[in-house]
Simulated assay, not measured.
Amino acid sequence: MPLSQPPPPRGTLLHIAERRHWESARDAGVSYAMSTLGRTLDEEGFVHCSSDLAQAEGVLERFYAGVDRAGLLLLVIDVSRLDAPVRHEPADGSLFPHVYGPIPLSAVIDVRPVPGSR
């Protein structure tokens, strides 16, 4: 899948979010606390993120293949605005950033369509 978006700014992480969960947190003015597809931060222990667009595209292909891309968003997170630690941990032969706490709304500096969306 070709990259069709500009790269995220330095010092940021990417998180694939279900649109309904992001919009619910945003509209309620509360920190975002979903970890991954259908799983909360409390269930997983951290929020799954990607370091760059290529890594996010791989996650989309492996774990979100059957999900309508219109229902997904790509959150661009400013690491300096997080209250929780970020650990880069191995998974599937790569290091993935995991945020060990909720994502404050102020840390989300951009919301984009996921790669491959129309």
Results as ranks from 00 to 15, higher is better:
residue 1 M to V: 13
residue 2 P to V: 03
residue 3 L to R: 15
residue 5 Q to S: 06
residue 6 P to Q: 06
residue 7 P to V: 10
residue 10 R to Y: 13
residue 10 R to C: 07
residue 11 G to R: 01
residue 11 G to F: 13
residue 11 G to E: 07
residue 13 L to D: 07
residue 13 L to V: 08
residue 14 L to M: 08
residue 15 H to Y: 07
residue 15 H to V: 03
residue 16 I to F: 09
residue 17 A to C: 09
residue 19 R to A: 12
residue 19 R to E: 09
residue 23 E to V: 05
residue 25 A to K: 05
residue 27 D to F: 09
residue 27 D to Q: 10
residue 27 D to I: 02
residue 29 G to Q: 11
residue 29 G to L: 12
residue 30 V to E: 12
residue 30 V to K: 11
residue 32 Y to D: 08
residue 33 A to L: 04
residue 33 A to Q: 11
residue 34 M to G: 00
residue 36 T to I: 03
residue 37 L to Y: 14
residue 38 G to R: 14
residue 40 T to F: 09
residue 43 E to S: 11
residue 43 E to F: 10
residue 43 E to K: 08
residue 44 E to I: 12
residue 44 E to H: 03
residue 45 G to F: 07
residue 46 F to K: 10
residue 46 F to G: 02
residue 49 C to I: 12
residue 51 S to F: 02
residue 51 S to L: 04
residue 51 S to A: 13
residue 51 S to I: 00
residue 53 L to Q: 03
residue 53 L to M: 06
residue 55 Q to W: 01
residue 55 Q to C: 04
residue 55 Q to Y: 02
residue 58 G to N: 11
residue 58 G to P: 01
residue 60 L to F: 04
residue 61 E to T: 05
residue 61 E to R: 11
residue 62 R to K: 13
residue 62 R to C: 01
residue 62 R to D: 12
residue 62 R to S: 12
residue 62 R to E: 14
residue 64 Y to C: 04
residue 65 A to R: 15
residue 65 A to F: 06
residue 67 V to P: 01
residue 67 V to C: 06
residue 68 D to V: 06
residue 69 R to P: 02
residue 69 R to L: 15
residue 70 A to R: 12
residue 73 L to D: 02
residue 75 L to H: 05
residue 76 V to H: 03
residue 79 V to K: 15
residue 79 V to C: 09
residue 80 S to H: 10
residue 83 D to C: 10
residue 83 D to M: 04
residue 85 P to I: 06
residue 85 P to N: 05
residue 86 V to I: 14
residue 87 R to V: 13
residue 87 R to Q: 14
residue 87 R to M: 08
residue 88 H to Q: 12
residue 88 H to F: 12
residue 89 E to M: 11
residue 89 E to P: 00
residue 89 E to Y: 09
residue 90 P to L: 15
residue 90 P to H: 14
residue 91 A to I: 03
residue 92 D to H: 06
residue 93 G to W: 07
residue 94 S to R: 15
residue 95 L to N: 08
residue 97 P to W: 02
residue 101 G to V: 00
residue 101 G to K: 13
residue 102 P to S: 15
residue 104 P to F: 03
residue 104 P to R: 04
residue 106 S to V: 09
residue 106 S to G: 14
residue 106 S to D: 13
residue 107 A to K: 04
residue 107 A to T: 05
residue 108 V to K: 01
residue 108 V to R: 09
residue 109 I to Y: 01
residue 109 I to C: 08
residue 110 D to A: 15
residue 110 D to N: 14
residue 111 V to E: 07
residue 111 V to Q: 03
residue 113 P to R: 15
residue 113 P to N: 11
residue 114 V to E: 02
residue 114 V to A: 01
residue 117 S to A: 15
